[in-house]
Amino acid sequence: MSVLQTISLEHLPADYVVHIAVYREVKNSSSLQEQLLAGNTEFEYALIDASVIISKIQAMSAAYRAVNDLVENRLRSRNVHSEIVFSLSPNNNIAETFRRFGITPTTTNLLVIKVSTPSQPFSADAVQEHLTKSIDGTQAEFNDNVIAGMTDLARIRKIYKLNTVGSKPEKGVANAKAERRELEMLIISSMALRGATN
């Protein structure tokens, strides 16, 4: 059964869609990363370590920005897929981004994003087929519950420098759910302001 999600994000041209999949217990992270680094064109995906993802919205936000930048012709990285990973970053240090957000040999939970564009269209079936073939792991549904189970909050707080959020209950963050929501908001904002905060 395919749990790959295909999304037409708001305010993008109609012929750009994103396909998103989640995998747990991935065993071949090393070789997946190698393929990516080798520039193998069959492996043009955004391969993201799911532990640094707090929610669906965060992942889609990165996808939106990257595709928007593609459409406006202002990619800063090699292609739209590397740009998605870059769009997760709070700063402009591209090299650091892949170390922090991208797949590494130790990645066990993986978020995969594929962009279908007019010049390079990919159907959901084609993507699902290729992923099933290439990823040694268990596919899960792309939803917030699944993702929450994979999030490494401490790591996220460190990367986005959000250590103080939620630590003071009087600042209005009453419970774990609200705290998570607030973190998610701040992460989205940091991504939006990539490199421009001072």
Partner: peptide, 9 residues
């Protein structure tokens, strides 16, 4: 909260 920014546009 800020969701997205496009200062160029």
């Amino acid at each position: 909260s800020v969701y997205a920014v496009d200062e160029g546009q």
